[in-house]
Design a protein around this nucleic acid. Structure first.
Ligand SMILES: [Mn+2]
Ligand SMILES: [Mn+2]
Ligand SMILES: [Zn+2]
Ligand SMILES: [Zn+2]
Lengths: 159, 159
DNA sequence: TTGTTTTTGCAACTGTGTTGCAAAAACAAA
DNA sequence: TTTGTTTTTGCAACACAGTTGCAAAAACAA
């Protein structure tokens, strides 16, 4: 881990600009990497391998995808989003700050539609631990209904 | 889910008393169930199937163990403890309250020794979510050094 | 274009968690 | 204690996650 480079990954970024990102991280620019990173950027949600697969253009091996994700993790391009099911992955914020950099945000999983999102604006509150515990990082997953699904419920109730 | 029965499961409970617990939950008392429950009670930490296995007296099928855990979950005897790795399980507090009952406590995973514990006294703080999100439950995992391991570090530094 | 280094695909493997089914065990009732 | 019913267990098979060794292919720097 060396990347002090703060690269902004936004969904407004053109495919052409993406290959430049890899140079910054000293990674070779390959079709698989570009495709995976683009999917993770466009879909603004955390994706598991299974979620990712249908978006991948046919030919790319599972092992390669896993290796790609691991590489992105190592470089801090993406972060893990544990949501109870299989591990999901999301790009490390528009700010370019990974979880390890202390930018620890809350994750929200919708019980209805199943989508998991980074709530980048919501910090994990401090907790007071018993004597002797030395915390280093924290992960807070909130489950419930997302905006879309809770609106649906409200609308339904109003009818 | 029906159990309003609040059964206290403590590590001071004798094996004989355990079989009584099952009756309260309308479960048949079997060797496998008694053994698994006893292990979960004695070890005061969250255990995965892999953690559990070496403590089981030889003959008990993986499928049976999983089914037993699921049964215990359904009855609220134990709760899931997601700690990033495989799912772990821990008895639902001395108070007999499961996570679903609103007694949501923090879990701590030690980066050194790998043990994951329920911090039953530490509640998960409320978080203010963006408009529209309707939270139902929350899970907070803190990683760092546990009491034992952080003490070891301190001691080492003092030498 | 060439040579070096990295990445990919394939295959094989470990481990988790689930399910159908028939035999065995638990229990309630006689 | 025996019997009959219901639940639990073990086995086998399965689907899927995630990892690794290795040789071929692709990326890149010179
Ligand atoms: Mn996130
Ligand atoms: Mn717990
Ligand atoms: Zn939703
Ligand atoms: Zn420790």
């Amino acid at each position: 881990m060396d990347a002090v480079l703060v690269v902004k990954l936004s969904s407004f970024m053109k495919p052409t600009q993406l290959s430049g990102v890899f140079k910054d991280y000293q990674l070779r620019s390959t079709p698989v990497r570009e495709e995976i990173l683009e999917i993770l950027i466009r879909k603004e949600m955390a994706l598991s391998l299974a979620d990712l697969k249908p978006h991948l253009s046919g030919a790319s091996d599972r092992a390669t995808v896993y290796r790609t994700l691991k590489t992105f993790l190592d470089k801090g391009i993406i972060h893990r989003v544990p949501d109870g099911g299989n591990t999901k992955y999301a790009v490390s914020g528009r700010s370019g700050l990974s979880t390890r950099d202390g930018h620890e945000h809350v994750h929200f999983k919708c019980a209805q539609c199943g989508l998991t999102r980074c709530l980048e604006g919501v910090r994990i509150p401090e907790v007071r631990l018993p004597e002797g515990y030395a915390p280093r990082e924290a992960n807070l997953l909130v489950e419930g209904l997302c905006q879309t699904c809770s609106r649906a419920v409200t609308t339904l109730a109003a009818v």
